[in-house]
């Protein structure tokens, strides 16, 4: 059996490299792999592109990655939340690039990336700034934007439970982007709240099958 369990958070993130595009799960404070993000910060990586719904809050998590100069570009739907103080400061002086993506389009681009698709047609953003440079196709009389799939080098995932095979469950709305991100990256790293033996997860309730998971570590505290 493939050895997926890392002995520490630091060991779990050794596969992340300079210049990687990294998907990071979470919405607000729910389902954010805080421990993995902190461990990536410790590695002082550079030129990362971070894909996540928000651009970090306060000075921890994604905000710390930004503050320590690890991030070249942010892709998110809601970059200028009041709590995203670090991002706003960097963006104001052009120290970080930004691509704002409508939230549903961001999710679907990731889903498409994990589903082996090249892209999809969405009514979202037709006639707005988001449509600039994108192809508009008309299907059954309605206009759609052609949006391309998004795949990444790595994904940082927060799960509730994990077994030794890497199967994952999530807790309530902490699921958010995590299951789709786990399918859309070449190297998938998970922080789980709790580990259970093989067979300890009801197969009917497993949201992410372990085949998508490369490394996991156990972090009882968020």
């Amino acid at each position: 059996m493939k050895q997926r369990k890392a002995n520490s958070v630091a060991e779990a993130v050794t596969g992340i490299k300079n210049g990687d595009v990294v998907l990071i799960g979470g919405f607000g404070r729910g389902g954010v792999p805080e421990n993995l993000i902190e461990a990536v910060c410790e590695r002082k990586l550079r030129d990362l592109t971070i894909v996540s719904n928000n651009a970090g809050t306060g000075h921890t998590g994604i905000a710390r990655l930004l503050e320590e100069g690890c991030v070249r570009k942010m892709m998110c739907s809601f970059p200028l939340a009041a709590e995203s103080i670090v991002f706003q400061e960097l963006f104001a002086r052009d120290a970080v690039e930004l691509e704002v993506v409508p939230q549903g389009t961001l999710a679907e681009r990731i889903r498409a990336g994990g589903a082996g698709l090249g892209g999809f047609l969405t009514p979202t953003g037709v006639g707005t700034d988001i449509a600039a440079g994108k192809q508009v196709l008309t299907v059954a009389g309605r206009d759609y934007l052609l949006e391309t799939a998004l795949r990444a080098d790595a994904a940082l995932i927060k799960a509730h439970r994990v077994d030794a095979v890497g199967n994952l469950t999530y807790r309530m709305a902490a699921r958010n982007f995590n299951p789709i991100m786990a399918m859309a990256a070449d190297h998938v790293v998970v922080e789980a709240h709790e580990e259970v033996p093989i067979g300890g997860l009801d197969p009917e309730c497993i949201i992410t099958p372990g085949i998508y998971v490369d490394r996991y570590c156990i972090c009882p505290k968020p």
């Binding site: 919405f27 607000g28 404070r29 729910g30 389902g31 719904n53 939230q103 549903g104 999710a107 679907e108 990731i110 889903r111 999530y170 807790r171 309530m172 709305a173 902490a174 699921r175 958010n176 982007f177 995590n178 299951p179 789709i180 949201i207 968020p222």
Partner: peptide
């Protein structure tokens, strides 16, 4: 505050009986 059950505005909310959760792509589907 249970961070696993927040509203879109990031405030703590409840789940009504019969409620369910989906991932983000399904939520926007």
């Amino acid at each position: 505050v249970d961070n696993d059950l927040l509203s879109a505005g990031k405030r703590p909310v409840s789940l009504n009986p019969g409620g369910s959760f989906v991932h983000h792509a399904d939520s926007f589907a």
